[in-house]
Nucleic acid binder design. Sequence first.
DNA 1: CCGCAGGCAAGTGCATGCACTTTTTGCCTG
DNA 2: CAGGCAAAAAGTGCATGCACTTGCCTGCGG
Lengths: 233, 233
Amino acid sequence: MSGKRGLVRSGTTVDQMVRAIADRIVTGYLRPGEKLDEGSLAARFDVSRTPVREALGQLSAIGLVERRPNRGAIVAVVTQEHLASMFESMAELEAICARFSAERMTGAERRSLEMEHQASARMVQLGAEEDYEYFNTEFHSRLYRGAHNTHIHDLTVATRSRLAPFRRAQFMLPGRLAKSWQEHDVIVTAIMRGDAAAAGKAARDHVSIVSEASAVFATVDPMESRLSRSARR
Amino acid sequence: MSGKRGLVRSGTTVDQMVRAIADRIVTGYLRPGEKLDEGSLAARFDVSRTPVREALGQLSAIGLVERRPNRGAIVAVVTQEHLASMFESMAELEAICARFSAERMTGAERRSLEMEHQASARMVQLGAEEDYEYFNTEFHSRLYRGAHNTHIHDLTVATRSRLAPFRRAQFMLPGRLAKSWQEHDVIVTAIMRGDAAAAGKAARDHVSIVSEASAVFATVDPMESRLSRSARR
DNA sequence: CCGCAGGCAAGTGCATGCACTTTTTGCCTG
DNA sequence: CAGGCAAAAAGTGCATGCACTTGCCTGCGG
């Protein structure tokens, strides 16, 4: 494309590309195995192939896409086995965060965790799945931050985002909302009384249950999600 | 540069660059804060700036280098705090691997772990630090693999390599070799009798000790010698 | 002497071009 | 009509070029 690129030159075209593509993968808009054509992406975002290539390189470095030399890039395909390993890791990572949170959260952190958690009960009553999902994300983020360990935080967030496409539909299962809240409650209670072991165990169990809830979709999801999502509603 | 690039066109110039640069960082040949000039690197490896840029992008994606838009890249500087968080994470990750190993290692894996461990006793007697360090790496890799969880394996290996520059001198401390062996022994024993909790604890303790042993070097190593020489005075 | 505006060199960011590799197409043969 | 194969098309990999940005340097005013 000739001439200026629309608007402000933010200086980080590549970063924008990384985020844009990652977002599409994480939200399931781009599906595992889907081909990522440099030329098309470049055209789609109105940039040259160079930043697209760099973005794909970075995404492949963090495992979101797979690159076959001379044969293009595809959205990373996760095998059933690898998916299971990620869920299991997630359970362990969350357990660590919860343990550390129980030991290290500041007074302010504890208070706001508890407050938000109590507030979320309302969403459960109303069956506000969308709102609860948003809260849920925030709740877990609080645990990750509360661990006061940036590296664990980063690993956990990264793992979580890789799992995002497979967790999407978890709250669709009947009664899952209320169950999730109760599980959170166990975690919060343990943290509030500084019981690291209990908090860790509760967090691990919580994720394990999500994992099982998601397993159903996992087998179907990769290929279907887009269709069913846009079809529904 | 004109003409062919000397050798075989392996099809993955960027990958080679990533490995080459990562290796220099991990081995400490390039030091934290050091500037990574695209032009110089390109000249040094006799390629154009494009693959160098891609490599730097990927390295920044995995956290080994830091990129400031329009201001070049530097080898990632790890703060004392972040370093501590990585060591702590490492301890937790190793604990997980050890726990899982205790539960899941196959008979063959257990046998060869034990055998190699026993063989390493000889290196301790001889004070063969270099050999022992090599064995040590292999020993830990066995634990990571023995966990039979690819994601945890990857996280652990990645974290380990980021810590590599700060662990270098650990076996220089007097008596560290023998102590390391004894700690390994506790881990191996726990694994052999399938005691996951004990294996986890032993592994965590082991890493914690390494962490303390390394802390001494960590404080001095990163910024000082090379940079300060040219900066001040 | 300090400060600082403006210009200059170095270096980054992206577009484009060309060589090469893989995939597809269309024709020919058995 | 399937199989094979060569040539075209499509797509990737890297080099090069140019527009910018940054940081330094210089020289002028305070």
